[in-house]
């Protein structure tokens, strides 16, 4: 596969993932929607909707752990304790009656203000778990970060 085809495939995969997750976010009842979601791309098998934490090797991301989002200039734009995550589907594949399907663990949070457009660093209990992450248009940050297929040096 050429690098251009690889980038195109990656872009499609990211778009599908974001769309699926955005769809999940919009179907979760009448509670006010948080404006920020930390999505752990662990791909763990879970029942949809169950409370979750990051599965190994992302098991540092669990309820009660301190999350910090640090902007490129070193400013901490969000510091909070993680709540329970929620298992959300990652694709539109029909898994039939399977009780557990591939999921991501999504932590819904409310930031104190606007989040930066540029790359951010995600820290949990003082340890860096993601660098160069970006807040998507849907208010999601992925751990590990999505590939920046449009950025420099992506060849």
């Amino acid at each position: 596969m050429t690098s251009r085809a690889t980038r195109a495939a990656a872009s499609v995969a990211i778009a599908i993932t974001a769309a699926v997750l955005a769809g999940c976010a919009g179907a979760s009842g009448a509670a006010p929607e948080p404006t920020f979601q930390l999505v752990v791309r662990d791909g763990n098998l879970r029942a949809l909707g169950v409370a979750c934490a990051g599965a190994r090797p992302f098991d540092d991301l669990h309820p009660g752990a301190e999350l910090v989002l640090r902007a490129g200039d070193g400013t901490d734009v969000l510091t909070t304790d993680l709540p329970d995550g929620e298992a959300v589907k990652i694709d539109d594949i029909d898994y039939g009656n399977a009780p557990r399907v591939p999921t991501f663990c999504r932590f819904a949070l409310t930031p104190p203000g606007d989040l930066p457009d540029g790359p951010i660093t995600v820290l949990v209990d003082g340890q860096v778990v993601a660098e160069g992450a970006r807040v998507s248009d849907d208010g999601m940050v992925f751990v590990p970060p999505l590939a920046d297929v449009a950025g420099e040096g992506s060849e």
Partner: peptide
Amino acid sequence: NLRIWRGYAVTEP
């Protein structure tokens, strides 16, 4: 060190 967890393929409690 999650040695027993790994032995039983536990990824999440």
